[in-house]
Amino acid sequence: MNEVSKPIPVADAETAPYWDGCREGRLLIQQCADCRRRRFPPHRLCPHCHSANADWVEATGRGKVYSWIVVNHPVPKEVYREEVPYVVALIELEEGVRMVSNIVGCDPHDVAADMPVSVFFEPADGGMVLPRFRPATGAA
């Protein structure tokens, strides 16, 4: 690709329902229909019991920051020059799974471990909608 864009998620057979959920403003994660464990990223088989029976359940969208970085140096420069500094975080959802996203809506240096955050959805390159997080208001 010569055209510069942010990386565009390419939905596949396992992840299409997840990305469709984002378009509808719903954060969907898989739950094994047999052993009931939740998992992320989406996959056909449960890594615990290998069952192929899974339900898509809507997460509350609430979680807390497990780890985070502040990106100061943009890579690729032409794509992220206007974005830095930005925060990428590993977020632990209330449902017990971890996912990667951005924390916006606060100073990057105000992000802290275990900070409560909540999801919102934002249109992104390639016609996709990404789940992003901001500091949770009110009780966590």
Partner: peptide
């Protein structure tokens, strides 16, 4: 450096958030 701009496989859950380079991975 950067990874490809079409994020497939597990990368679809990481790169679109600007989590792209090894320094970024390991800073976590």
């Amino acid at each position: 450096g950067g990874r490809e701009m079409l994020a497939r496989g597990v990368t679809q859950h990481t790169a679109p958030f600007g989590w792209i380079t090894y320094p970024q991975a390991m800073a976590m």
